[in-house]
């Protein structure tokens, strides 16, 4: 294994398996990965409160299933960044591809740029804050957690949504089945303000609209056939 310094790994010279094994085994400390070269599954399966900074672009499933760690990707991320995250923080300073934060159970995912389709699909408690736009079918079947979009949302936002809460500042191309605009009550302004602050964005919560489930698809009903 080529370890440039006590806490720096060069992925151009060190196999992915060795880098991941070292990061997964570390129980504390700060690490930097250079020359990621779009590698897939980088810094996935971390289990402890370590800090990892990736200097460059990542491929699929970067920081997948993260638990407790704080991972920063200084670049763009491919499909499924922070998928199924349990806790901790993942930040992408650039853009992210589709399925960002998919099925995440907890923690905070921040995308400073835009994300593609299906951001937050089947999210189960994760908080996702996107500085730019999100693609179509974002928050599809979103079960729990919060998705904040400072830009615009693509078509079919929140299709078949369960109990996740969606906040969008810009336009929404269309809402998916059973997703409706909801009243922005004081408690929502408060939680949104806290989320924006944690994510490092300076934005007025009052400029957002809230979306969530109409709960009309929770039980099969022939009168809702058009939505199935």
């Amino acid at each position: 294994m080529v370890q440039l310094a006590n806490s720096e790994f060069d992925l151009a010279a060190t196999p992915l398996r060795d880098v991941n094994a070292a990061l997964q085994a570390a129980e504390s400390g700060a690490f930097t990965v250079v020359n990621p070269g779009g590698a897939h599954a980088l810094a996935c399966g971390l289990m402890h409160p370590v800090e990892v900074t990736v200097k460059g672009h990542c491929g699929y499933y970067a920081a997948g299933m993260n638990k407790e760690a704080a991972v920063t990707i200084e670049g763009n991320a491919g499909t499924g960044v922070a998928e199924n995250m349990m806790s901790g923080t993942v930040r992408v300073t650039g853009d992210a591809s589709q399925s960002a934060g998919a099925t995440g159970h907890g923690g905070l995912l921040v995308i400073e740029g835009n994300t593609s389709a299906r951001c937050g699909i089947s999210m189960k408690g994760i908080d996702i804050v996107v500085g730019g736009n999100v693609g179509h079918m974002s928050a599809f079947m979103a079960q729990a957690g919060r998705l904040v979009v400072l830009g615009d949302a693509g078509a079919d936002l929140g299709d078949s949504i369960y109990e996740a809460r969606l906040y969008v500042r810009g336009s929404v191309a269309s809402l998916g089945a059973d997703c409706v605009e909801k009243e922005m009550r004081p408690e929502h302004l408060t939680e949104l303000g806290e989320l924006l602050e944690r994510a490092g964005f300076d934005a007025d919560p009052a400029s957002f609209k809230r979306y969530g489930s109409a709960r009309k698809l929770y039980h099969f009903n022939i009168d809702h056939m058009g939505s199935y």
Binding site: L16, R17, H40, A41, Y61, G64, T79, R118, I121
Partner: peptide
């Protein structure tokens, strides 16, 4: 939710192997 065909699945399996 995060892969759409066998090429993607190959990468997904790589992730599962890395985590385990």
């Amino acid at each position: 939710p995060d892969w759409t065909g066998p090429d993607d699945l190959e990468i997904k399996i790589g992730e599962l192997r890395e985590i385990t």
